[in-house]
Design a protein around this nucleic acid. Structure first.
Length: 418
RNA sequence: GAGCCUGUAGCUCAGUCGGUUAGAGCGCUAGUUUGUGGCACUAGAGGCCGUGGGUUCGAUUCCCAUCAGGCUCCCCA
């Protein structure tokens, strides 16, 4: 309801007090689990070179052709990052992270930007967390990605999701499959949707992803890429499945799962939820063995995923999952009269210096109003300070939960919090 | 980018078949309690009825446009 002159841009939202606490709780879980998996955090700039994003994600992808926020300033082209795989790879190449030895296991949390039409679970500034494992083609890396991804949801208490798995093959497998697929579709080309017709030459595999009703029959009977994988891709896929089985992770092999970015090879996976509505993808990812070289590094196999944090929080709300405890403070200092107020201003620090969370009323209000405020702030204790207390050195120390109170000296009050 | 729906107080929503001062609950402020919160009661503050235009003697109400949001398509996380 924008009645005010200045508002956020469409699809860009303020995260207000009350909501921020959920974000911090979610971030804490991600950091905690990443530490348990021995992954390291990486933070890259919000803006990258436009060329990096175009090369990384693919010139013809929807993200690049119509969803990036880009502008030019001086001699530089800037783009607000629409995802973080290409930037992380850029950083990996730029700083020679491979020289640190071993596979690099890098996770991130942060805002992304895509100029899409906003709807539930889809914003123009949104947040993802994700993981990239660079420098190994071992299927265990694929499975570690998937395990970490799922672990976050399970740790939060979300169990109602489906893991879809497929292989989009290596370039060799994919080329042969594209021919098979096109041969299969060609006789019926006229009956396909307009969108699919345009994809027939540019990116025929994306046709498998179509939800147009007229395409469904052809898609259902389409040859599956799995049957056209070469030896290496096929073995890799089997190993991924085997390791997932060993870990007891259930998955659904979906021959129609095709990812939206050009850089994917071999393993592709997606986590979907029935609690999300039409934007039902929690997270997605896969292997991208060609991207590092594409961006100018040594040939380096890699795998990763990205997960939408808004969608995760939507699911929490739908499922009634509380990420945060009710907040409270240790002490609310109620002061009566100017002398007491001066005393409070001076002594509040003595509580805070002892790590006791403490506050007071800022508006010089009545005792009743201050007590109400203490209650609203969920204070565990209230300290009542008036002229009597200042004279005697004994203060009324009220336990707000039990509605009991006693008269204590300042030193005695400090010991109550140990 | 396309289709449909919605837009009244901080929040959730009534309402006006077009007619003087626009309603509730919650929340907020204060009082009932000269130094004591949660409950109750009482009072108060808070609305260009999303914005702009049109029809009309008169529009929050009808029409058009626009903006924002929701649902779906598309796309993706």
């Amino acid at each position: 309801m924008p009645k005010t002159k200045y508002t956020t841009h469409p699809g860009m939202v303020d995260i207000l007090p009350g909501e921020v606490e959920k974000w911090r709780a979610l971030e804490a879980i991600i950091h905690e689990q990443a530490a348990i998996f021995n992954f390291e955090e990486i933070r890259t700039p919000i803006m990258e070179q436009t060329e990096l994003i175009k090369r990384g994600i693919g010139q013809l992808t929807d993200i690049v052709t119509k969803e990036i926020f880009a502008f030019t300033k001086g001699d530089h082209n800037y783009v607000l990052r629409p995802e973080l795989t290409a930037p992380v790879v850029r950083s990996y190449v730029q700083h020679h992270l491979a020289q640190r030895g071993g596979a690099q296991k890098l996770y991130y949390i942060g805002p992304m930007f895509r100029a899409e039409r906003p709807q539930k679970g889809r914003q123009r500034q949104f947040h993802q967390f994700g993981l990239e494992i660079l420098g190994t083609n071992d299927p265990i890396a694929d499975v570690e990605c998937i395990t970490f991804m799922i672990r976050i949801y399970e740790r939060i208490g979300i169990k109602n999701f489906a893991l879809k798995l497929n292989s989009v093959g290596d370039p060799e497998s994919r080329e042969s499959y594209k021919h098979v697929l096109k041969d299969y579709l060609r006789p019926n080309l006229e009956q396909l949707s307009e969108l699919s017709k345009t994809r027939f030459e540019k990116n025929p595999m994306r046709i498998l992803d179509s939800k147009e009703p007229e395409d469904q029959e052809f898609i259902r009977n389409a040859p599956a890429i799995r049957d056209f994988l070469n030896e290496e891709s096929s073995q890799h896929f089997d190993q991924v499945c085997k390791y997932l089985d060993m870990r007891g992770i259930t998955y659904l092999i979906d021959p129609l799962l095709v990812r939206g970015m050009d850089y994917y090879t071999k393993t592709a996976f997606e986590l979907t939820s029935p609690d999300l509505g039409s934007q039902d993808a929690f997270a997605g990812g896969g292997r991208y063995d060609l991207l590092v070289e594409e961006i100018g590094g040594q040939p380096t196999p890699a795998v990763g995923f990205a997960a939408g944090m808004e969608r995760l929080l939507i699911a929490c709300d739908e499922l009634g999952i509380q990420l945060t405890k009710e907040k409270s403070i240790d002490l609310f200092v109620v002061c009566l009269g100017d002398n007491a107020r001066d005393w409070c201003i001076k002594h509040l620090s003595e509580f805070r210096n002892r790590n006791i969370s403490a506050t007071m009323d800022y508006k010089g209000r009545s005792m009743k109003a201050q007590m109400k405020e203490a209650n609203r702030q969920n204070a565990k204790f209230a300290l009542i300070v008036g002229d009597n207390e200042l004279e005697s050195g004994k203060f009324v120390f009220r336990n707000m939960l039990e509605s009991t109170e006693e008269k204590l000296s300042l030193e005695e009050i400090f010991t109550q919090f140990i």
